[in-house]
Design a protein around this nucleic acid. Structure first.
Lengths: 223, 223
DNA sequence: ATAGGATTCAAACGAACGTTTGATTCAAGC
DNA sequence: GCTTGAATCAAACGTTCGTTTGAATCCTAT
């Protein structure tokens, strides 16, 4: 099977190179020349296998994000099964939601970190390619988790819940995208390689946030 | 003073155009031709006033972010003054930190929203120009707030506090950068123009998160 | 009025971009 | 052993990029 193996090598090399360079320089800053050069091939090969730069970017997103979302849903299923008739514990839901993406993003030596950076940025990125790919793959997970959080937090008005989910996604996205940032700002104190620790810190932080009382603060000055 | 006024007009038009186009297409995607065209002038004028594209970008960041940070510090001073010898309430600190940037980002019809989008993205952006500008202007605020949060949450280990601040910044950045995102995902339910409401929701969410107990969850399965 | 610096302009510069082309290499099928 | 189709290659395509140039225009101060 030499031909197939070689082809796979070329495609995988291109995906790896694109992933690393998009993470490092953004989609616009990662030129096809730099990608193909890093992959040890040339422009025409990339165009032969992926057609356009956009499709290459889509393939980069799709390669890892599918499995991550599958793992999310698996953990959600598991949490719901363990909870039986009642709603799962809030911590379990948060862990199922943020765990896979943070874990995958930090534990692999290079590819995971690169991919996590891309994912963390993609949702607020100006280029629609990355955002649409990501949201497409994320759609089912969003639906499932929205329902699960609604059941786990029955007293929360739907608006409040959706805003809190939005904040949660932000904290997660920023964390996986900003590893280099946190190392710049106070990297002397924090250890960004303790993946389990980061996940558990996020779970504590976000569970408390999601479960915050609605009106402890009686609106500062207008009522 | 016609000359000065005209010059100011050109410079301001360039800043406005750059702000809008960087927000919409990212720094790399906002070409000098598009910027100068939108500003109603031409390439040479932009280069005459700002030298390079990078300096124009820096000016875009500096124009609004200075005042926003000044307002943050003013609110922090006010909170500390009101609290007297004790530490200010956590809610006050969070409100002082996230309020000005969210408020400024949402209330102005166009410029604020554009600027907020840029700020929200800048910290995790690949281009170092925006990130460095932002972090430079943010340095003092980070220092002051880090001290204030330390005093308000004396029982929290420093690592835990820094991670929580990181998560908080993420939630804030994602919120101001992702207005269009939340409108895409569930814009049918949420009103992104209720600025005060968003701020208070974030204050509740983040205050509860920052004050979360450290070890309610006894580490899932490895202890 | 007029000299002179500040500002704007159309045009062009070289470099880098994504994509395409046509020849070349390579392994497998008859 | 020759053909076939997939895969790779160097080279070039036209376009767009940020920046520069040198002339034209506009105010201000003499």
């Amino acid at each position: 099977m030499p031909a197939t193996a070689v082809v796979q090598d070329t495609k995988l090399s291109l995906l790896d190179a694109a992933e690393a360079l998009i993470a490092e320089h953004g989609l616009a800053g990662a030129s096809m020349r730099a990608i193909t050069s890093r992959a040890g091939t040339n422009l025409a090969a990339a165009n032969y296998h992926f057609g356009t730069k956009e499709e290459l970017a889509r393939a980069v997103i799709a390669r890892h994000f599918g499995p991550v979302n599958a793992e999310r849903l698996r953990l959600l299923d598991e949490a719901e099964r363990e909870a039986g008739v009642g709603a799962p514990r809030l911590e379990s839901l948060v862990r199922a939601f943020v765990g896979p993406v943070v874990r995958f993003g930090q534990e692999l030596p290079d590819r995971g970190r690169h991919f996590a950076q891309i994912c963390g940025r993609a949702m607020t990125q100006p280029e629609p390619v990355l955002r649409e790919s990501l949201l497409g793959e994320l759609a089912e997970a969003i639906r499932r988790f929205r329902a699960a959080f609604t059941r786990a937090l029955p007293d929360l008005p739907i608006e409040e819940l959706l805003w809190r989910i939005h904040f949660m996604v932000g904290a997660m996205a920023h964390t996986i995208a900003g590893t280099q940032l946190i190392e710049e700002v106070h990297g002397d104190v924090l250890d960004t390689r303790d993946v389990d620790g980061i996940v558990e810190r996020m779970v504590r932080f976000l569970s408390a946030a999601l479960a915050a009382p609605i009106s402890e603060t009686p609106a500062p000055e207008k009522g």
